[in-house]
Computed example of a mutant assay.
Amino acid sequence: MSNERLVGDPEVPAVSFEQVSKHYGPVQAVRELSLQLPQGRAIAFLGPNGAGKSTSMEILLGLKHASSGRVEVFGKPPRQAMTAGHVGAMLQSGGLPADVTVRELLTLMTKLHPKPLRVDEVLLRANIADLADRRAGKLSGGQTQRVRFAIAIAGDSDLIVLDEPTTGMDVENRHIFWNSMKDEAERGKTVLFATHYLEEADQIADQVVVINKGRLLANGSVSDIKAMAGFQRIAFRLPGVTREQLLNLPHVVSLDVLHDHVQIQTSDSDKTFYALLDQGLRPMEIEISALGLEQAFVAITERDNGDAVETTETEDAR
């Protein structure tokens, strides 16, 4: 089967891991990971720090060899797919040469790519046309990240791999970046990205993969991942309430009280809320909803770690 038939064939996954493990001496970074990622989707690759995300991405890019197992990218070994120009990547590390302009840098990158795009098109796709004549050494941190994204899409690659691409960006630059990334996904590219900004992954991802301790923990749509957590969120305002008044409510998984604002994570929102009323408490501005992706991610990974979720202030997944 020719290479061209593999790309665009819905029967062929963009990325396939089969029982992949990676050891660093006694440390096992990836543990028998089996996973297939379809073509043409925006896929969030999530996991706590040290979960094996970056190692897995480096293996699929051919930058590291698996200790065991098999990896294919569009049906081929990773390095062969990279050489053919099917993959563009933006990793966490890597700087830019300070004394060249953005246009000069992208011109070089397009000349090196097997399937180059026009430089002006890359500037527009990455939304950095205003930076074209600026020297890389004069860019802010967020602008540098956007230029690194432009390098990742400098060719007509079929898979774009992004490892924590918005680290160091302010809110405005993150918004600009995610719009550029969504445009790539809408062009039919497969976009695989790791991020700690889970509220943005919630809005953008077609599919979510969660790994923990190097193992596959969850794989599905955003709604699938939220459903796996099995919890709901109750939020309300209640002047004068204390933590002690709420600690004994049934089915509470976590409890956060800040002044008169309360957030409760519960495994049974009906029973928790009725018990609240039975205590004679009358909350205001009540909201009962499913967990967001960030809260679901925390709940799933904590459950996998075997940690008892205490009734303390909710921690931020970042």
Rank of each mutant, 00 (worst) to 15 (best):
V27A: 09
L112T: 04
H259Q: 12
R233K: 14
R148S: 10
H113N: 07
I211T: 02
T55N: 10
S54M: 14
V102F: 07
V15Q: 09
M90C: 08
G306E: 07
P78F: 08
F17W: 10
G188Q: 02
A126Q: 05
R303Y: 00
A275T: 06
S140E: 08
K213L: 01
E294H: 05
A150Y: 07
I204T: 14
R79S: 13
L96M: 06
R174Y: 04
S2R: 05
E121S: 11
G141P: 01
S54I: 07
T242I: 02
H259I: 03
Q145F: 04
R215I: 03
D133S: 06
E121W: 06
Y197I: 14
H251C: 07
M82R: 14
M90R: 10
Q232F: 02
Q279A: 03
Q263M: 12
F17E: 10
L249R: 03
M228E: 15
N127H: 08
A185C: 09
K115T: 04
V102L: 13
Q245C: 02
D307V: 15
E199H: 15
V12Q: 06
S67T: 15
L217S: 12
T190G: 03
A98P: 12
V253P: 00
A152T: 04
A98K: 10
K182I: 13
L198E: 05
L238N: 13
L162I: 02
N179P: 00
A299M: 07
H259Y: 11
A66T: 08
L96W: 09
Q39N: 02
D120C: 08
R134W: 08
F74G: 04
R70I: 13
R187Y: 05
V253W: 03
L124S: 14
